[in-house]
Design a binder for these strands. Structure first.
Lengths: 367, 367
DNA sequence: AACCGTAACGCAACCGGTTTCATCGCGATT
DNA sequence: AATCGCGATGAAACCGGTTGCGTTACGGTT
């Protein structure tokens, strides 16, 4: 029809859609985005044209014109690979929708100076905001550096975030309490607990939830065997060994995450204990590790992918608000967790048969 | 100084740099990119201005103007989480450098129709190329669909790629042979092998490498215990059980990947066998799982992140070449593997002391 | 000395949306 | 009935780089 521009790339543009729909490019843009102030009949015509031409907006042009944030940092440490991949999948999906790029930076070190250094590298690459998955979400040097550079950030999966901070999380307390109740319902009375790394507040929250459910059932928390772990497989081995070495070993072990639970299963096997017949073992997070090991782990599901998406959305909103110097009130997002009952938990030996197993108990929505 | 445009975002642009350097925007662009046909003195002036202003080009504007590919698909299946996260990290880094977005699509199913369906979704989202990590790199329905849609793709980690296909891989044959030689050097003579999933050619290549090294040492392959596995932890358990149930159990197990090796370690422990004293267990890939389990796994390192980067680079080159209807000769990229000796391999009981342990043997570069 | 080829560089258009602002139409207001 | 107000819509400038092509400077030819 019309002579194609020399540089034209043969892709369909707003102009094409506008021509087909008999409106201006402007109107097409309005329909594609918010869609305010467009008559219904017009909107339909545009949508029809879009469908007919199989139009999909050019994200480069879009973010150039709109002046969106284009570079979002993601500073990751050493979470379990399973956690990271889930997280990246969610973050990536959200980033593409928003038309921005994820700038990854690794920071395996726990040394404050190296953490600060890794963070600083963001400031020089003109990153407009940073996502902090655990455990870096609580690393003081990182936050201080970001604060100094005036770069907004969002923390993910903190147990107890400080007021007025941007963050997305689940209710660790309730999740742990629900899991503990599950074990109690099965008939367990001697439940060993493996704590998480003290550098994360979620560790304390999970323990609190555990303790609360115990007290609820009239069990004195002081009599309960607890060992310190650090969220790593390795630390789980040590903790589980100690738990099982006790004169009165527990009939169930509640590990603060799946990695340590998997380690506990390994230790049990090495000692000739069958899971779950001789020992129940449960975890937290529901990373892919939970379904990798045998038997599959009963655990508390954390919607990691969704949390990443929400985190990016929150961050972008903050950046936009900051640009137009508005106040944004969005600060915290608490997502639902879910108790996932699999093969690794069962009634203790010689206990009364368990009640009917619930397949999954969602937490109530808290927003 | 100059009145800032109303819509200006306060970022430094080529124009600013050009003004400071006393040249035109055009020249700045030339310096930043290829840099042909620019006098040295001019180049230095521009670079100085860039440094002074801390200029970094706007990637949205860049890819809009240059008309680069903007959407690259990544169809992933169910590789171990450890593999996927490593892969994503590499792909993401490369994508950002190239200024394009990664469009993720999951395809867990092995059913041909669902694989085709998942692939088709790319065609409709105007993805300009697709990266296929294993095991989808060899899924016929996926490739057929891509071929039909005329979308170029690159396969990653195939064992034996077909001629004239775009792919990046390591030499599975040599990697497996090197590992086998390591076990032989330690004094093992009865080595059990767990094959990988037959839907991937790398499985066959690894087995071939294993067999070749054995024959090299004068061992008849027919006498060697081999079990079928499917690259999953679960399949590793079954295979390891069978291997150890044999009347003359092996003194070492070579699993075709880390997941199955980890499973074998678990099985050994459950049977009261100490690794590596009573049984050596080695894997392949060097995913994070290898250093998670205890003892840490001797394995063959595959540079997963780098492979992802190379894959994207190859794909982008092909797309560019296709656009300017040139022939690109780049087709295959074979990266170096490395034998990583850790704690899970040792001389068999009562064997002559091992020779000095080499810490890592790189393959020769093959390009 | 006029000529010419090439390297070095600038101008203007353009990539594909979005923002700004002006315009139009039409029912409600006075 | 003239005016007002507002929702719906379009024209043009603009976002920040890059491509095509024209221009300038300069060393070497003949």
């Amino acid at each position: 029809m019309s002579k194609p521009s020399r540089r034209s790339r043969g892709t369909v543009t707003v102009q094409d859609v506008a021509r087909v729909a008999g409106v201006s490019a402007m109107t097409v843009s309005r329909v594609v985005n918010g869609g305010t102030n467009v008559r219904d009949s017009t909107r339909e015509a545009v949508l029809a044209a879009i469908a007919q031409l199989n139009y999909s907006p050019n994200s480069a042009a879009r973010s150039l014109a709109a002046g969106d944030a284009t570079q979002i940092g993601l500073l990751y440490s050493n979470p379990s690979a399973a956690y990271l991949s889930q997280f990246l999948i969610g973050a990536l999906a959200a980033a593409r929708r928003a038309g921005c790029h994820l700038v990854l930076e690794a920071c395996e070190s726990e040394r404050p100076d190296e953490q600060a250094e890794a963070t600083r590298s963001f400031a020089s690459t003109s990153v407009e905001g940073v996502i902090l998955p655990p455990p870096l979400s609580e690393a003081a040097p990182v936050r201080a550096e970001l604060e100094a550079a005036g770069i907004p950030w969002v923390s993910v999966a903190m147990g107890l975030p400080p007021a007025r901070s941007l963050n997305v999380r689940i209710d660790d307390f309730e999740g742990a309490a629900a899991m503990t109740r599950h074990l109690l319902e099965l008939g367990h009375r001697k439940i060993g607990f493996i704590r998480g790394n003290p550098n994360q507040t979620s560790s304390a929250e999970r323990y609190r939830g555990f303790a609360a459910a115990l007290e609820e059932a009239g069990i004195d928390v002081k009599t309960v065997p607890v060992e310190q772990g650090y969220f790593t497989f390795r630390s789980g081995i040590v903790a589980a060994e100690r738990l099982l070495d006790r004169p009165e070993p527990p009939t169930a072990i509640f590990a603060s995450n799946d990695d340590m639970a998997a380690a506990a299963v390994g230790v049990a096997h090495r000692r000739g204990l069958h899971v779950p017949q001789d020992l129940s073992v449960v975890g937290f997070d529901d990373t892919s590790l939970a379904t990798t090991v045998w038997p599959e782990l009963t655990t508390v599901r954390q919607p990691i992918s969704t949390m990443a998406e929400e985190a990016l959305a929150l961050l972008l909103a903050r950046i936009r608000a900051h640009r137009s110097s508005e106040q944004d009130k969005l600060e915290e997002q608490v997502l639902d967790h879910e108790l996932i009952v699999r093969e690794s938990s069962a009634p203790p030996k010689g206990a009364a048969p368990a009640r009917s197993r619930s397949t999954g108990v969602s937490s109530s929505a808290l927003r």
